[in-house]
């Protein structure tokens, strides 16, 4: 349904007075089928949010292609962009600042309807009331202002606004990371149930691996603007192939007793995306890096079956990989 091919997004920046290009997303390809929930995981500077914003035309892309249902949406006219808004919507990380503080909930949720439909007056109010009900809020919230609502309620309002035009694709950018865990659980449950009800497709951006494992059937791990591993969620979590994915999984503290305390899987810092390492971007922190290879040549994409792909030389040297196809990347 959504097909992203070789997407690159660069931002012009000034680094110590010199003009430079920050490659936030570097040659990324992704495919989402209808009804998929693809988790995009990574740490800061990985470019995961930029991908979501670029798909929705909130950022310009530098090169590459994005297609929705086979229809190219990389460059769009004003009318084309309007049409895209009806099909793809976004939920933002911080519900506290995603609603205009001077607008009532009614006006906020009505805005997409006012822009794209002919609904007005009492019919519009009716429709907004229904939308609020689907996200589990009573009609009494219609005339409230955002500052009178809790974080979870605000996020529900944002979901109602995004659902107003019945989109097929929802980009969720860290939708629960600003919420308390007991509220997060309710929002996640709700997002999961409407996904099934309306067979929505989710691009779920998060730094929280537990949440991604819970929400998504497929996952893509990003590091410094590149996807280093992607595949079916359970396969990636049970048998991670890329050393970075492994480290990331080991780094998450578990909510259970009896863990070893002294296990920081990775040393060093995340390099600046302004000046990413050559070869494999991860080689500066990778304990399995092969000198003279990983620091020079970009690693190949290795297919482990079922769409489980990792970009690493280790896969090539055979780690019990069955029937993998090796594709050299550029």
């Amino acid at each position: 349904m959504l097909d992203v091919k070789n997407l690159t997004v660069g931002f012009p920046v000034r680094n110590r007075g010199e003009k430079a290009m920050l490659m936030a997303v570097n040659d990324v390809s992704l495919t989402l089928n209808k009804g998929d929930a693809l988790g995009l995981v990574g740490e800061s500077g990985s470019g995961k949010s930029t991908i979501g914003r670029t798909i929705l035309h909130l950022n310009p892309s530098t090169s590459g292609h994005i297609a929705l249902d086979g229809e190219e949406i990389t460059r769009l006219s004003a009318a084309g962009e309007r049409a895209l808004r009806k099909r793809a919507q976004m939920i933002f990380q911080d519900p506290h600042s995603a609603l205009n503080p001077r607008m009532t909930i009614l006006r906020s949720v009505a805005e997409p309807l006012v822009l794209h439909t002919r609904l007005r007056g009492s019919a519009l109010r009716e429709k907004v009331g229904e939308l609020l009900e689907t996200v589990g809020l009573q009609k009494q919230f219609l005339y409230r202002y955002p500052h009178e609502l809790s974080g979870g309620q605000k996020q529900r309002v944002c979901i109602a606004r995004a659902m107003a035009l019945n989109p097929e694709l929802l980009v969720l950018d860290e939708p629960t990371s600003a919420l308390d865990v007991s509220v997060q659980a309710q929002i996640l449950e709700f997002l999961k149930s409407i996904q099934q009800q309306k067979s929505l497709t989710y691009l779920f951006i998060s730094h929280n691996l537990a949440v991604v494992r819970y929400m998504c059937n497929r996952v893509a791990v990003m590091y410094l603007g590149k996807i280093v591993e992607q595949g079916p969620t359970e396969e990636v979590f049970k048998a991670p192939r890329h050393p970075y994915t492994k480290a990331l999984l080991e780094a998450v503290p578990l909510p259970e007793a009896g863990q070893s305390r002294r296990t920081a899987p990775l040393g060093g810092d995340i390099p600046s995306p302004l000046n990413p390492p050559t070869g494999c971007a991860f080689h500066t922190r990778c304990d399995k890096a092969i000198a003279g290879k990983c620091d020079r040549v970009p690693p190949p994409e290795v297919d482990f079956g079922h769409g489980h792909v990792a970009s690493c030389f280790l896969g090539v040297e055979g780690q019990g990989t069955t029937g993998e196809k090796i594709r050299e990347l550029a």
Binding site: R53, L56, L58, E81, R82, R85, K86, Q89, M90, F92, Q93, D94, S97, A98, L99, N100, P101, R102, M103, E111, P112, L115, H116, C158, R161, A162, A164, L165
Partner: peptide, 28 residues
């Protein structure tokens, strides 16, 4: 760069609407 302005763009609000509905009232 407020998130609600981004949100307004993502639901298809034009520049004029963003200025008059989302920016100006918050400058009052």
């Amino acid at each position: 760069s407020a998130i609600y302005v981004d949100a307004a763009r993502s639901i298809g609000a034009g520049r004029l609407r963003i200025v008059f509905v989302h920016i100006l009232p918050n400058c009052l």
